[in-house]
Simulated assay, not measured.
Amino acid sequence: MAQSGTRLVEPDLPAPAELSADVLPVSRRRIQWLFAAGIVAGVVLAAIGIARSGHNAVPLPPGAVARVGDAVVPRSEYERTLAALARDRKSPLTPADRAHALQRLLDEELLLQRALELDLPRTDLRARRALVSAVVESIVATQENAELSDQELRRFYEANRDWFRGPDLLRVRQIWFRVDSVDDAPRAEARARAAYEKLASGEPFDEVRQAMGDPESPPLPDTPLPATKVGELLGPTALRTLMELGDGGLSPPVRSATGFHILKLVERRSALPPSFEEIRAQVANEFRRRAADQALRTYLDELRSRTTIVLAPDVAKELLAADEP
């Protein structure tokens, strides 16, 4: 234990990756010991030493609880740490608890300063990603937590009504040719192609359906259905085919898991968007998402405007080529 006012100096501290295999187990045990909740006596003695050594130091600025090197530990952070510790305890905090909380903050600051000395934000990928994510989250949080009025949400809803509307409604009729086994497929396909030729020559859809198609079980509802529902009933291939047809369009035979289908798109309707009151929460979420994206783009534009960025010539050419139409 250092005496009051003593400053320990350990030059050329190794980076974590430089520690030998013999040292690592001992280091881990030491770290666990330092950060264990039960080391009350050691923490108290450390706190006493810190307090005494600060008697002759430069006074702390207002709102600071400690100085570690040139960095100041804010009192607000100390109080947040105490509040979090108090929530986990059923009894009032003791002086030893408070000393332990302070010691944790000091240890974290020491480790943070060492991480910066080792340039971990640039040399450690996990640290780099964590810092970038923290900056992005701090920018996005300002929009996610913003209070939104009904007036601005209604304006946003009206300006983006098409975005909030549901999928198109399709009224579809079909002639179905059942396939129960692999052996059935060639005969069913031949029947379907013969029926399609009759339709292409102008024979009425209902007559060809009655004469050549198989009974549907259950029948396809003769009413406008959401495109997603049509996909559930007929399969994704049939839905893709229908989406390419115009009103009154007729498809050649389309294969599905149950057989072959000749599809007729009777009508396509654009679904009306739900009322604002029905989807207010969805409108608010989309408003915040777009606002957060814009805030991040604006922030990055500001950073670019005040930063000189130099590219290697070959990379600059690639970037310019990518911008060309």
Results as ranks from 00 to 15, higher is better:
Thr308Asp: 14
Thr298Ala: 11
Leu110Met: 15
Val58Gly: 00
Pro313Glu: 12
Ser133Thr: 06
Ile31Met: 02
Ile139Val: 14
Leu131Arg: 14
Leu45Lys: 12
Arg126Pro: 00
Arg128Pro: 01
Pro14Lys: 11
Arg304Leu: 13
Ala211Asn: 06
Leu311His: 13
Leu13Asp: 08
Asp168His: 08
Met243Pro: 02
Leu233Asn: 06
Glu286Val: 10
Arg187Thr: 12
Leu24Ala: 11
Arg7Val: 10
Leu242Pro: 07
Val182Asn: 04
Tyr196Val: 01
Ile175Glu: 02
Leu148Lys: 13
Asp314Gln: 13
Ala194Cys: 01
Leu272Ala: 14
Arg173His: 07
Gln103Arg: 07
Ile262Gly: 02
Glu232Arg: 12
Ser4Ala: 02
Pro121Met: 01
Pro186Phe: 05
Leu85Gln: 11
Gly69His: 14
Arg297Ser: 10
Pro92Arg: 09
Asp293Tyr: 15
Pro204Cys: 04
Gly249Asn: 13
Phe156Asn: 04
Glu108Ser: 03
Asp214Val: 05
Val44Gly: 03
Arg126Gln: 04
Gln143Ala: 08
Ala322Phe: 06
Arg297Pro: 05
Phe287Ala: 06
Ala130Gly: 01
Pro252Phe: 12
Asp183Ala: 10
Glu267Asn: 13
Leu320Gly: 09
Ser201Ile: 05
Ala47Thr: 12
Gly69Trp: 12
Leu311Arg: 15
Leu13Met: 10
Glu109Met: 03
Glu79Trp: 09
Glu277Val: 02
Arg268Met: 03
Leu296Asn: 13
Ala115His: 07
Val266Met: 08
Phe205Val: 08
Ile50Glu: 13
Arg306Tyr: 09
Ile309Asn: 06
Ala227Gly: 06
Asp124Phe: 01
Phe205Ala: 01
Arg87Val: 08
Pro186Asp: 10
Arg155Glu: 14
Arg165Ile: 03
Arg129Thr: 04
Val132Trp: 00
Ala64Leu: 09
Pro204Gly: 00
Ala257Val: 14
Arg304Thr: 11
Pro325Met: 09
Ser201Gly: 08
Val254Lys: 05
Pro16Asn: 06
Ala188Arg: 11
Gln282Trp: 12
Phe260Gln: 05
Ala86Pro: 10
Arg289Asp: 11
Asp107Ile: 01
Asp301His: 07
Asp301Glu: 15
Leu220Pro: 10
Ala86Glu: 11
Val9Pro: 00
Val40Gln: 15
Pro218Thr: 10
Arg28Phe: 06
Val44Ala: 00
Asp70Pro: 00
Arg129His: 04
Ile48Gln: 11
Thr223Ile: 14
Gly63Trp: 12
Ser91Arg: 14
Thr241Tyr: 03
Pro273Lys: 02
Leu239Ile: 11
Ala190Gly: 03
Arg255Tyr: 02
Pro186Gly: 09
Asp183Met: 02
Pro59Gly: 05
Pro215Cys: 00
Leu110Trp: 15
Thr308Pro: 01
Phe177Pro: 03
Glu137Val: 02
Gln210Ser: 09
Leu242Arg: 07
Asp70Tyr: 08
Arg193Asp: 00
Gly42His: 14
Pro274Val: 06
